[in-house]
Amino acid sequence: MPKLYFDVAHTLAGSLVLLSFVMLYQRRLGALLNVLALHAAVLALSVAWQAHIQGAPHLYITAAIALLFKAIVVPMALRRMIVRLGIHREIETVTGIGLSMLAGIGLVALSMAVMLPVTAGADPVAREDIALALSVVLIGLLLMVTRRNAVSQVVGFMSLENGIVLAATGAQGMPLVVEISVAFSILIAFIVIGIFLFRIRERFDTVDVQALDRFRGERR
């Protein structure tokens, strides 16, 4: 039985990393949002599985929050936003997709190389989870760095946060208060960023952050 627990947990965490890679090569914002929703849904599943293994009912609440807000509310809101901004068909790339995929692979290897020796004595489930969670965080950062559109930067930020939640739930005994407060802080960050997006749009007629640079008289 423990073998099955481990395999399922590993699969779910692994598919989170896979979905992060999927995000890396999405060029259209709409598709990116779909992957984000899927990412959050897998996260919710993973958290629920952890709740089941650890026998910790409060983790079900975390899973519900993840499912409700991250898989449904935030992607829908973002979708409405890009429709209202009229950028749902836009294509944007910064670096080549192949290059960013290679960088992502490197990051996963790095997080494995760093995390596995460090957590040698820990519970194997938590160990794998933390290593994979770090990969998700790093790929989220990579997404934020390589994208130029503000909305996709928000998406990168959200996926980064998913990685943090994954790591937090993998470690046993994390209090519920911490998880809820993390979830709400993300929500508030989302609201603030959303407002800023509209303000930026209002002023510059675009959400391409390069416009901000041009406005400040910077050369790229």
């Binding site: 950062l141 934020m144 130029r148 952050v209 901000l212 640079d213 400040r216 910077e218």
Partner: peptide, 8 residues
């Protein structure tokens, strides 16, 4: 005086 993305 860098851009947000550079800081990131």
């Amino acid at each position: 005086f860098l851009t947000i993305r550079r800081y990131l």
